[in-house]
């Protein structure tokens, strides 16, 4: 057993080193004094200051945030409805096509999704900008939301909904008072997933944005093509820290909730 655990310890250490060292280097060198990213010249936060004065980046960040909030909220509503229809809707005409359209965008290469949406927007003469990016992001992220929510709906005890209906709830009250609170964690994680996907997306946004709307990934991509720059390192560090804080908080909250649920169940059993 000892040899095996030695092997496991080494593979875990090497594996996580591989996953994290590139990001750690990125963060460290965002505090580098020198313009040359690969040579350490002393500690400085000047790149963060320059970033805050760079209007192009700030504007792009604002556009990205707007797009992400709108598209993820819309995607959560549409995706939850889609999941509900798929799991609870029974048979209806074109159900196979519908479930195909929910799963296809998950495996569709981004270049194809982007190209096809752009051709649609041009075809119907829609001016490209924030609105078209929101439409595009909503379309692919609602499919992710619907997969997350439907996996929760499948495992959930249907008799609870039926009990609510028997006790005089209308269908919409049963959904609002019984179904929604139970699937809420899945809906929230669907929203978070949609939000991150939208923040992150470069390819689809490049196809569907116009000159009036540049998102942060588009801006970063065009800056990065010219080479490594300390400003981008600073920006990356800010984004990495936000994600890290978010993920750790989310996991602590879930852990707390699971523990609370277990305690309540134990108490219910005891009484």
């Amino acid at each position: 057993m000892n040899r095996m655990s030695w092997f496991n310890a080494v593979s875990l250490t090497l594996g996580f080193a591989f996953l994290y060292i590139p990001m750690v280097i990125l963060v460290i060198f965002s505090f580098n004094e020198s313009k040359l990213v690969t040579v350490w010249a002393g500690f400085s936060t000047k790149w963060y200051g320059e970033l805050l004065q760079n209007d192009a980046f700030l504007n792009a960040a604002w556009v990205t945030l707007k797009v992400a909030v709108f598209s993820s909220t819309l995607a959560t509503v549409l995706g939850t409805i889609a999941a509900y229809v798929l799991v609870r809707g029974g048979r209806f005409m074109g159900r196979t096509l519908f479930s195909g359209m929910i799963y296809a965008p998950l495996v569709m290469p981004e270049v194809i999704t982007g190209l096809s949406l752009l051709l649609l927007f041009i075809g119907i003469g829609l001016d490209r900008g924030v609105f078209t990016i929101v439409l595009a992001h909503t379309t692919f992220s609602m499919c992710y939301v619907s997969v997350v929510v439907s996996s929760r709906l499948v495992t959930f005890d249907r008799s609870l909904e039926e009990a609510a209906l028997d006790l005089g709830c209308s269908a919409s009250e049963a959904f609002r008072l019984v179904t929604l609170p139970i699937i809420a964690p899945a809906v929230i994680s669907g929203w978070l997933l949609a939000f991150t996907l939208s923040l992150d997306d470069l390819v689809i946004a490049s196809f569907t944005s116009g000159p009036s709307a540049t998102t942060l990934p588009i801006k970063i991509f065009s800056a990065v093509r010219l080479g490594v720059s300390p400003e981008i390192n600073a920006l990356s560090t800010i984004m990495i820290s936000i994600v890290t804080v978010g993920v750790i908080t989310a996991s602590l909250v879930t852990k707390h909730q699971v523990a609370k649920q277990k305690r309540e169940e134990m108490e219910a059993v005891r009484s």
């Binding site: 590139p22 690969t38 990065v224 080479g227 490594v228 990356s236 984004m239």
Partner: peptide
């Protein structure tokens, strides 16, 4: 899972300096 939530573009960019 943490790297999965971090921007794809940034993770690719990190390798350019390496």
């Amino acid at each position: 899972i943490l790297p999965f939530w971090t921007s794809f573009l940034i993770r690719v960019y990190a390798w350019m300096g390496i």
